[in-house]
Amino acid sequence: MDLTTLRQKMDEAHYIYDDTLATVLYVALTLGRPLLIEGAAGVGKTEIAKVMASALDRELVRLQCYEGLDESKTLYEWNYQKQLLSIQVHMGSEDRDELTRSLFSDEYMLERPLLKSIRSEKSVVLLIDEIDKSDEEFEAFLLELLSDMQVTVPEVGTIRAKSIPFVVLTSNKARPISDALRRRCAYLYIDYPSLDKELAILRAKLPHVDDALCVAVATAVRNLRNSEAILKKPSIAEALDWTAALDALGVRELTPEIIRSTVGFVLKNNEDILTMEDMLESGELTAEECDCGHEGEEECDGHCGHHHHHHA
């Protein structure tokens, strides 16, 4: 697949992307490397895997990482209970060796996401979400899988991949990822989107919402993110929630009262809400200063939040 085709597919999936993102995805696909994505919470890291699955028309296999995750939960597990039952049932059987062999066959193996993704006949998209939450041993175990696309099960032997999955790893930086894993991956850092991109996302995800409202929300969210004093910056998901909530309330215009009553959708702690109060009073929150480089109304078309926005 070349870059243009990839872009077309992503357009078809209604995903808003920029050139850098498209190029990075293309590089990872071409080299067959796993893609490690880092960035603040809620910038759309997980979304990329979903979009790639739909763009490439592959199944998405998801592995959510957490502390204490180990091979038995990610790769395979012997169905111990079933094995025990089988032993009890076949207690009187003559051929003991045959019984032992049969206990370690596919029938008793519980397939977990990683094994499923490499044993699948058709290539899948494997999302290993929040790898930073897992332990270091699990990371080390992933190395074999990611570099050689094979895993070793002591009772069965080495299982080679039938198809090569497109692997996406995401991290919130709760702990540093080892260099060995980084080296094997293509790397992407996602920052909060620019005003234009955010607006495009709002329009694409919520096509029925009034455009002026989208512009107002995107501007306010941009201003909140730009403020040094806000500790937990609002994410794209929160901007979407806010817009949807405002739309559901039938709001057409962002007034200070409306902002106050719905701010819980974007800001999630008290200090930030107090800061926002200050910003509202100084007019900083709804300021129209524009970073898109447009000067006149006719050039700008309102994409940047200029001229369309009502001052509080």
Binding site: L3, D19, T20, T23, V24, Y26, V27, A28, L31, L36, E38, D179, R182, R183, C185, A186, Y187, L188, Y189
Partner: peptide, 20 residues
């Protein structure tokens, strides 16, 4: 396209934000 070359090579060479 210089920017595409930059993004592509950055993906290959740089493995963290500091490295980027």
């Amino acid at each position: 396209d210089r920017e595409i070359v930059r993004a592509a090579m950055s993906t290959v060479y740089a493995k963290s934000r500091e490295e980027q």
